[in-house]
Design a protein around this nucleic acid. Structure first.
Lengths: 166, 166
DNA sequence: GATTGATGTGTTATGTTATTACGTGACAGA
DNA sequence: TCTGTCACGTAATAACATAACACATCAATC
């Protein structure tokens, strides 16, 4: 488990977008995947926020940039990104977020702040995970796991207490 | 963690429906909740399957039984059931399933078989959960957790191997 | 007994998320 | 050149979900 999930800390954002795109470029190169303009732009759009964006939000921005304006345009790009580990779908929100640890094979866990909408991604140790233990004891073979927690992030927690101290 | 999540084993189904409804009745009685006809029927509908049903599936069956035929009818009943612990929403499927451990306060984990569509609910030990560990180290306060695994259940795994032995 | 408020059910209409189906252009290999 | 595959575009529709309003019931109060 990653004790320092990004998402709730400050950081240099323009860098983090550019770096991530560059890395995605390299990864696709190596893997023989095509990071086409729509796909790259979709990734950038996701990277520009540390919250999850709905497919139609992404679609709207893609359309602004001259890409197609119909749902499949966004869904296909998002599909590519999620299949290849550049983004994740947050099931609870029916929305998408750029992967914070691309390249690694991982079972991500997400912390969703219901106040500020930030979403943090934490890496998990698959072998110790609860779901794997359950799967082992029952003989179930997991192909994909969804780990998502809704709640209040440290920042919003602090703000709440500042406003409404008990 | 429950080493024996129900859902993948055989059992007496008519009993399990009737018993669960009776228990829900008692629980509502105690808690001052109204298990009205629509709500009770919705619960029965969910209990009749060990898989998750979409709201519109539930709606169709409610309508057959003379209840309203518009989406809010189903969503309100499902809302009541989920809020009060008689059912859960499976986020991955946008679908609902009767709770296998009603009454207990618990953080359920679900195993979703993509072959036969069965969904098993396992109880988890909240204090040991991965998400809680992450939350502790980051200062995030969890209000709700989603733990869902997709994969192949033991039964389907056995069938697969019988058909296609490697 | 009438009034009021809370709760539950029903309806219409609409909003949001996701997919199916079909057509086209680009490009690699036979 | 032909063919298969992949990516992209569009139209249409399916699937999931909620807002807003009307009406009924029932308990508490006047």
């Amino acid at each position: 488990m990653d004790p320092n999930p990004i998402g709730f800390q400050k950081h240099d954002h323009s860098h983090c977008v550019a770096d991530a795109v560059a890395e995605a470029d390299r990864t696709c190169q190596k893997a023989g995947l095509q990071l086409t303009p729509v796909r790259k732009r979709a990734l950038e759009i996701l990277l520009e926020e540390h919250r999850a964006l709905g497919a139609y939000d992404v679609l709207a921005r893609l359309a602004e940039d001259g890409f197609g304006s119909q749902p499949p345009v966004a869904y296909r790009a998002l599909d590519f990104l999620t299949k290849n580990g550049f983004a994740h779908k947050i099931e609870r929100l029916n929305a998408f977020i750029a992967c914070a640890h691309p390249g690694d094979i991982h079972t991500p866990a997400f912390l969703i702040c219901t106040t500020c909408e930030a979403v943090a991604e934490a890496e998990t140790d698959p072998s110790h995970s609860l779901l794997n233990q359950i799967a082992d004891t029952t003989g179930f073979r997991i192909s994909r796991a969804v780990l998502e927690a809704e709640g209040t992030c440290p920042n919003c927690l602090a703000n709440d207490q500042a406003k409404d101290p008990k």
